[in-house]
Amino acid sequence: MSPIISDIIKIIIWPPLWQLIVLGLLLPLGVVVFIIWFERKTAARVQRRIGPYHVSPRIAGGLQLVADLMRYMFQEIIIPKTVDVAPFIMAPLIALILSILPVVAMPFTSNASYFPIGMRYSLIVALALITLSPIFVIVAGWASNNKFSLIGGMREAYLITAYELIVMVSFLSASAATGSFDLVKIVEAQAGGKWLGLLNPLALLAALIGVLLSTSGFPFEIPESEHEVVAGAYTEYSGLVYGINMGAAYLKRMVYSILIALVFLGGWRPYTPGPGFVSGYLIPSIVVFIKATILMMIFSFLRAVYGRYRLDQALDIAWKYIFPLAVAGFGLSLALAYLGIY
């Protein structure tokens, strides 16, 4: 092998780049495409329909999403005269970037040579980066200069206040249990089937509901609730920018799912990463992705079963029931730490 090719390969699998481009963007995008297809198919099955079919009947309409993507790509992007153009265009792009950025702070292996950044405070960094993107939904709603967009953006703002604390407390209960902000240590502490999600289901449940609230999954699909606010903050968007908006929401849910898989579901365990790229990096990251995908599938399934809560009810549930649940999970984690399980 010539040195140039090996250099190129080295650059590609340089952990920060690999993690952000492949594990942060391409692989989640693939998973998201699968999940959107799965969501439509699941809803169709529960609703006694067939779902996507005619685009590719042999693989159960699997190419429907590609067709949709093509449509979004070639659709005219209409920018209304009344919008504030710069934030209108920038907000979805920044939201997209910010929703995949947390991946750089997530380890997919315990092999230290494949960490993209230092892992000492990785949980804190990941959570901090995750909470940035909703602001740009509000910016998009404000810049659209449309009543429905504004109401949608405001709903997002209301919901941030509700879910942020829940997500923080429930994820930090892992730190309380293991005494570390290091995601690698948190995962390694769960080795041998001691998954935090099993020992501390309260924190897991709170985290799951927090994620549903934050990514407007059913039954909390409130900011984009079609029958009052058309498409929420995205009402004025069209074409690829609208597609980016929708994709960003799913990518954000994917990133959350990866984090839950790491913190609560044992990360790459039961697989033990070895040396080398394949066994030390590729296989553990695939294990994490499989766990995250299963979580995404569960989130998708709820669409078929639930309607949506009212805004005030969602806030009510978040503050009155889920936040105490998260705090109880935190306490349970402290008890686990006290008992010396981790």
């Binding site: 699941t42 099955r45 529960v46 006694r48 329909r49 399934f301």
Partner: peptide, 8 residues
């Protein structure tokens, strides 16, 4: 219904 959709 997910496992037994009874489609028509």
């Amino acid at each position: 219904y997910f496992f037994d959709p009874k489609r028509s």
